[in-house]
């Protein structure tokens, strides 16, 4: 069954959807949308480095995404004007990545697959790595859930309970970098943050508690993966963008039910 490219694509997408729900919810709650973008765009630079130095794509993107996540977290803690700084970082990372990749002849042909993902060519090794990574990040989020949530809600209340908000923030940044690295083959650098934010934003409408929002976000992301891949198969549309497009339609529908 796993020989089928479509099944592998589906499983890879569902693995990411599972972790995208809760992690994406934190991105929405903490208003880190642009943060996701800058980390994801930096990943292209990681691809260029990996190809130039013959590294695994995952190792290269993880490294660059981690550096970016830590730099941005440090800037946030210092209270810089966030939207400008992040805008500069996100787009310069993308620009440098694209320039760097143009020096690697073998990568030029594949550029599209790194920008928009190529879920239909996911192999067994990719699939294994994606699921191990996704379960690992999910495990960390569940382990720290109460602390992460308190620190997200109010830092003073968190500190009074002995929680270090900076540590929790750093943990989320690292989780984000890991998920960005895992997603680059599947959904591509340009649409990773969409995969995190859109399902979570759609899930906000009907959720009374954070846990329900995170679970609903995973569900919506999973349905988007399934319907997006089916449409890609039958209508011959690009897979990654189809998945995000389905999630966006869910978001539109959620407006009808919006409350609070």
């Amino acid at each position: 069954m796993l020989d089928d490219f479509f099944i592998r694509a589906l499983l890879a997408g569902l693995g990411l959807a599972l972790v995208a729900g809760p992690l994406g919810s934190f991105v929405v709650w903490r208003r880190m949308a642009y943060f996701g973008d800058s980390t994801a765009h930096a990943a292209i630079l990681g691809v260029a480095l990996s190809l130039a130095f013959n590294l695994s794509i995952y190792a290269g993107t993880l490294l660059v995404a981690l550096v970016m996540a830590v730099v941005v977290t440090a800037l946030v803690s210092r209270g810089q004007a966030m939207d400008t700084v992040l805008g500069v970082l996100a787009h310069s990372a993308l620009a440098f990545g694209l320039v760097a990749i143009s020096f690697v002849p073998s990568a030029r042909a594949d550029l599209n697959s790194y920008l928009f993902g190529d879920i239909l060519t996911v192999g067994m090794a990719d699939l294994t790595l994606i699921w191990i990574g996704a379960l690992l990040v999910l495990g960390v989020l569940m382990w720290r859930w109460q602390n992460l949530l308190t620190a997200t809600l109010n830092e003073e209340l968190a500190m009074a309970a002995g929680i270090n908000p900076r540590f929790e923030r750093l943990l989320l940044s690292i989780a984000l970098a890991v998920v960005v690295a895992l997603s680059i083959r599947v959904i591509g650098s340009l649409l990773i943050s969409a995969m995190l934010i859109v399902p979570a934003a759609a899930a906000r409408a009907l959720a009374p508690t954070p846990e329900r929002m995170a679970a609903n976000a995973s569900l919506i992301a999973g349905l988007s993966v399934m319907l997006g891949l089916l449409s890609s198969l039958h209508l011959d549309t690009p897979a990654g963008p189809s998945i995000v497009a389905v999630a966006a339609i869910f978001f539109g529908i959620s407006f009808v039910f919006r409350r609070g």
């Binding site: 109460q146 949530l149 997200t152």
Partner: peptide, 27 residues
Amino acid sequence: IGYVPQRVQIDTAIPMTVRRFLSLPRR
């Protein structure tokens, strides 16, 4: 210590019931 900080503002992006709030961080 039971603490009520200054100017607590809850972001509307986070769905949070009164009951759930009381269970943070200790259930």
